[in-house]
Amino acid sequence: MQNRVLLVEDDDELRQLLARYLTGQGFDVREAANGTDGLSLAAEGFADVVVLDIMLPDISGLDVLRELRARTHLPVILLTARGDETDRIVGFEVGADDYIPKPCNPRELVARLQAVLRRVAWDHQADVDSARVFGDLKVEPEQRRVILRGEVLDLTATEYEVLQVLLAHAGSVVRKTDLMQWALGRRLAAYDRTLDMHISNLRRKLGAEEPSRIETVRGLGYSFRITDVAAAQLPRQAAGSKP
């Protein structure tokens, strides 16, 4: 079965180029030249993943992302202007899973799409009875759902994957390079703050308690802090293995 990509981009030449390339790589592509049409196609349940330009003629891509996040947990990759860090930061805060600057390399876009889809597919293979509890935090992999004190957290697909890796190694340090590879499916590049932004969003959604549940280990990576109650509930995980 082909993976379905919804491509929302108002630049006709770029959109058609990307659509042709993605189709040639085995994707089933639907195109939208504006945010309104993109939201309509998403509402029809067509897409497995959305590639969304921030600069659209009718609705801001960030507003389209907000609408999508109100309705669905579909993975979203943003197309952003090169060097525009503000848009990227806001995009992650709103719920983007990844971004790629324009003009983009079609091969890199394919790699990002495959990484996102692999993460989602891998997690969907979880057993029905594999829910895990970490103190007041419960993870239900089949529904890709995280519940904190009885409330379901509104996590993006990538935030969920980052949290899954940290929880699988709770109490231990996960190197940034490993976390980037395991959760985002790509190598950590110099000056790439994508992972830091996802961690920041997770901390906010997990609550403002101090110390933070996700600790920064300077020069190494991140660690999920566990309580004594949560420690007794931790699943056994082979050191250095992907969760």
Rank of each mutant, 00 (worst) to 15 (best):
S40W: 13
R213Q: 05
D127T: 13
R144P: 02
A33T: 09
Q237Y: 06
R112W: 04
R186I: 08
T194I: 09
D98L: 04
S200G: 12
R88A: 07
R107F: 14
S212Y: 07
H198W: 10
K242D: 14
R175K: 15
L166M: 07
G150N: 05
R132W: 00
D48R: 00
L22A: 05
I199R: 03
V217A: 14
E13F: 12
G207V: 06
L22K: 05
R186V: 09
E215Q: 15
G45L: 01
G185R: 05
L153E: 03
G35C: 10
V5L: 06
R118E: 01
L220E: 15
M55K: 11
G91S: 03
R20E: 08
L153K: 05
E215D: 13
D98E: 10
G45W: 09
D53A: 11
Y21V: 02
E151Q: 13
L153T: 06
T23S: 06
E93H: 14
L78D: 01
M180Y: 09
A168K: 03
Q181A: 13
G24F: 00
R203Y: 08
L153R: 01
I199E: 07
L188R: 13
L68T: 00
M197A: 12
L113W: 01
D11K: 04
R149E: 10
P75W: 04
G45N: 02
A33C: 08
F27L: 01
V146T: 02
P57I: 05
A111S: 12
V217C: 11
P103N: 05
G221P: 08
Q25T: 00
P101N: 10
V110Y: 04
R203W: 07
K102I: 09
V229H: 02
G150W: 01
V165E: 14
R88K: 15
V94M: 02
L62M: 07
V146C: 08
Q2A: 09
R145C: 13
K176C: 12
R132K: 11
